[in-house]
Simulated scan of single mutants.
Amino acid sequence: MSAESLERRTRNYLSSSVPQIQDHGGNFQIEDVDEESGEITVAIGGACSGCGIAPMTMRAIERRLPEEVDEVTRVTVRRTSGPRAAVMPDKTEEMETMEEYQDYEPPF
């Protein structure tokens, strides 16, 4: 399997299975593909840079991408920020203690 093919499969997965990133004004970029180890680095940005629940999305991508793309062994997701990014505080821990979010899973 070539790195290009692995990158394409990763991009296809993110585009089709995580459409809310783009639907909500965010974007993703595959920054690195290590063909031999199966490690992928993905950056999310745009509206994701300032989103308080982006960490939940990031964790879901890190957990689910290796389940969906066979050759992927490890995923690192990071937020990018531009000069105008106003990053909201991470709401993940607070949301995890709220009853209405106890069974929350991102919808992908």
Rank of each mutant, 00 (worst) to 15 (best):
E100L: 15
T97L: 14
L65D: 00
E71V: 02
E35F: 01
I40N: 04
H24Q: 13
M56W: 06
Y101I: 04
R79V: 05
R63P: 04
A60Y: 07
G46P: 09
S81W: 10
D32L: 14
D90N: 14
D90C: 08
R8S: 08
N27D: 08
I44V: 15
C48P: 00
S81G: 13
E7F: 11
M58L: 11
L14K: 01
V42L: 04
T73G: 08
D23E: 13
R79S: 11
R78K: 15
R84D: 11
R9S: 02
S17D: 05
E31S: 12
M58Y: 13
R79C: 08
E39A: 10
V69K: 00
E36A: 15
T57M: 10
E36P: 07
G52Q: 01
A85E: 06
G38D: 10
L6V: 03
D32F: 10
R9V: 00
Q22T: 03
I21D: 01
L6N: 11
V87Q: 08
T10K: 00
A60E: 12
I30E: 01
M98R: 04
R9F: 01
S17C: 06
E105V: 02
G82W: 11
R8D: 06
L14E: 01
M88G: 13
G38S: 03
R84E: 14
R63G: 06
A47L: 08
A54Y: 06
M56D: 11
E71N: 08
D90H: 12
G25C: 06
F28L: 14
S5L: 12
R8L: 08
F108L: 06
G26N: 03
E35W: 13
G46S: 12
E105M: 12
R9K: 08
E4Y: 14
I21T: 01
R64T: 00
T57Q: 12
Q22F: 03
E62C: 11
R64G: 00
R79P: 05
S2K: 04
C48H: 02
I61S: 09
G38N: 12
G45S: 10
C48E: 02
Y104P: 04
Q102W: 10
M98E: 06
V75N: 03
E94N: 08
M56Q: 04
G46C: 07
T10H: 00
P83N: 15
V69S: 02
F108I: 02
E96A: 07
P89Q: 12
S37A: 14
L6P: 00
M56A: 15
G82I: 07
R79Y: 04
I30W: 04
S2W: 01
T73D: 09
A54C: 10
T80V: 10
M1P: 03
E36M: 11
Q22C: 05
G82C: 12
E31H: 02
Y13N: 04
C48W: 07
R9I: 00
E100P: 02
D103S: 07
P89D: 15
D103A: 05
M88K: 15
R84G: 05
A85F: 10
S2N: 13
E62P: 13
T57E: 09
P55M: 10
D23S: 15
P55H: 10
Y101R: 07
P107E: 10
H24I: 06
E39Y: 03
I61H: 13
Y13C: 07
E35G: 02
G52N: 02
A43C: 14
V33D: 01
E99F: 09
E31M: 12
T10I: 00
E31V: 05
V42R: 00
D34W: 05
R59K: 15
E39N: 14
A54E: 08
V87C: 06
